[in-house]
């Protein structure tokens, strides 16, 4: 009798364990790299084309070296507030950081578009922002010591990528980004 009871308990435990672990399917985790935009998932899943490093990861690598004070990332939906004329519907993946407190001019934008043509079309609006930011900061006496960040600030288009950098070391930032998207 005792053997029966013991056998029943063991069998139950084995059955339960099998059932619980049975749903642990291994799926390709499209969100491991946590792209900020869902469009990135759509673009990557099921695609036989080249896989791209998520913009969030690239931005994180840059910020690890050149942190932005009071950095705040902006969702794709808010990009139109910062870049006049930018067609956000052509953006597949993006990461855009500003200095939210207004205390420094630092900004970092990494955008992947659905095509090279879209990337090229976006350069103008992103460059306009850079020009406007520089002019605004030039007129702002408190920013005088920060103006060096505009010396080699850049908006660069490479293939489907456009990146926009105003950081404390733009050369280093560009090196990191090029290494990631190359």
């Amino acid at each position: 009798m005792k053997k029966r009871i013991l056998a029943a308990m063991i069998a139950s435990a084995l059955m339960i364990s099998a059932a619980a672990c049975g749903n642990n399917e291994k799926k390709p985790d499209a969100t491991t790299a946590a792209p900020k935009t869902s469009a990135a998932d759509n673009a990557n899943s099921g695609s036989t084309e080249k896989t791209y490093k998520p913009a969030a990861d690239i931005a994180a690598a840059v910020l690890a070296e050149m942190p932005i004070n009071s950095a705040k990332d902006k969702d794709r939906e808010k990009l139109e507030d910062y870049f006049d004329g930018l067609d956000i519907n052509t953006i597949v993946d993006s990461q855009f950081y500003i200095c939210a407190s207004g205390s420094s001019p630092d900004e970092l934008g990494i955008f992947r578009f659905d095509s090279e043509a879209s990337a090229k079309a976006a350069v103008t609006s992103i460059m306009d922002r850079l020009i406007e930011r520089k002019k605004t900061c030039e007129d702002y006496p408190i920013m005088k010591e920060e103006m060096y960040k505009f010396d080699d600030a850049a908006v660069v288009q490479e293939g489907v990528w456009v990146y926009y950098i105003v950081t404390s070391n733009n050369a280093k930032a560009e090196e990191i980004i090029k290494g990631a998207i190359g």
């Binding site: 009071s70 200095c99 407190s101 207004g102 702002y140």
Partner: peptide, 23 residues
């Protein structure tokens, strides 16, 4: 001024409620 840009920068308020400019 730039201090009030933080109201939208940090997304405390939407753009429509803020007129802020550095300097």
């Amino acid at each position: 001024d730039s201090i009030y840009t933080g109201l939208t920068g940090y997304e405390f308020l939407p753009d429509k409620n803020v007129f802020a400019k550095m300097g």
